[in-house]
Amino acid sequence: MVGLRGAGFIRGQGAVLTVILPLVLAGCGAKEAEQAQVRPVRVAPVTFKDAHAARSFTGTIVARTEVQAGFRVGGRIAARMVEVGDRVKPGQTLARLDPTDLELSLKAAEARLAQAEAQAVQTAADLKRYTPLLASGTVSQAQFDRVKAASDAAAAQKREASSTLSIARNQRAYGSLTLDQGGVITAVLADAGQMVGDGQTVLRIATDLGREVAIDVAEGDLARLSVGGTASVALWADGDIALAGTIREITPVADPASRTFRLRVTLPADAPDAVRLGMTARVSFPEADAAALALLPSSALFHQGDRPAVWVLAPSKDRVLLRPVEVAAFRPDGVAVKAGVKEGELVVTAGAHRLDANLPVRVWDGGLP
């Protein structure tokens, strides 16, 4: 009887465990499911500053004007007097062509002019003799007209020969390559003994008309820049050199490959000699609008209907609040926000499209879950 009662007790205990154990397991599963719904979020603090003023652009020191120098006549280069890096003065001879053919052309033009002058003298004398004969009726009007036409033609040929001689003299002078502007030789594209055509580039010269910085800016930054605006220029090679520049030119059309606009920033005329062509420079522009902006990652932006918004971590640190914001500009490095968030607030920067106001969250510390 005792054994039977013991067995019954054990069976009763088993029945109780059978009922309680699923309830306990169900409670543990619910707790784990509740914990699994807490979503980690990555956040970043909001910091207002003059985001535009911090923008800088990298450019290259270039000459304001660069001349592609070549002979105005073709021929064989007899001598080249300059090398790359030489500084030249206005009117200095840079290269010279073989003058043989030019001298022969000049002598031929002189001979043609002498012949035309002699012909003009002869026909003028004939016309002078025929004039009184026409008045006396010794010669006919037709004979006089032929003599006069010959005299007029000879005078025209003389003028033509004189112009041809002037051209030949100019061409002989063109055998010496000179420039009206001084500068620095940046490239040599032809050497002595080489045949060149008229207008073919022989030397490339950066003139002394000034130095500039050429930079490329995105279309999002172009709206706040204009010709005549000021800029600050610093050299990468020498951080102690700081120059004030002025925007001289903005190309009206974007580059088809990079979709950027080329700007030319003029450097002051008294720039030190350390500012050399080809150096890398950093150009920054002061922002006229002093309104502070908060630069947020593009991944933080969320849209509430047709309005931009961001998720802000609540003071309790376990919920997020959807906050509409006013975007000042979309930039390559993020979104510039003008209003809607406060200094020091934590904004969700990853997974903004998977959040909900009722969803528990926790700040991700960077570790594994």
Rank of each mutant, 00 (worst) to 15 (best):
V139Y: 10
K31M: 14
H303T: 13
F302Q: 11
L301C: 03
T18I: 09
D216A: 15
G210M: 05
A95F: 03
A33H: 09
G59R: 07
L355M: 04
R307H: 09
N358P: 01
A237K: 05
L203G: 09
H303R: 15
D198Y: 10
V2M: 11
S226F: 10
A328W: 04
F71L: 00
P315R: 05
K317M: 15
R169C: 11
T207Q: 00
V73T: 08
A257Y: 09
D152I: 08
G91Q: 08
D86C: 01
I20D: 07
T58W: 05
D152R: 11
G366C: 03
G137C: 02
I61A: 11
A254C: 08
R262G: 03
I20Q: 11
L321E: 15
A244Y: 01
V84M: 13
A339T: 10
V363I: 15
Q115S: 13
D318P: 02
L94S: 01
P308F: 02
V62S: 13
T260V: 09
P45T: 02
L17S: 05
R5H: 12
A125Y: 02
I61E: 07
F71N: 06
W236M: 15
A30P: 02
D208Q: 06
L25F: 11
G344V: 06
A244K: 14
V16A: 12
R146H: 07
A51E: 08
A118N: 04
S166E: 12
T60Y: 11
F144Y: 13
V335Q: 07
L179F: 00
K31E: 14
T349S: 08
T246F: 09
P40S: 04
L134W: 00
V147T: 04
T230I: 07
L189Q: 14
S163D: 14
A290C: 03
E34M: 11
L321P: 00
T260M: 15
L203Q: 07
D145T: 06
R264Q: 10
F285E: 02
Q171Y: 09
W364M: 09
T123R: 13
D365Q: 14
V341W: 03
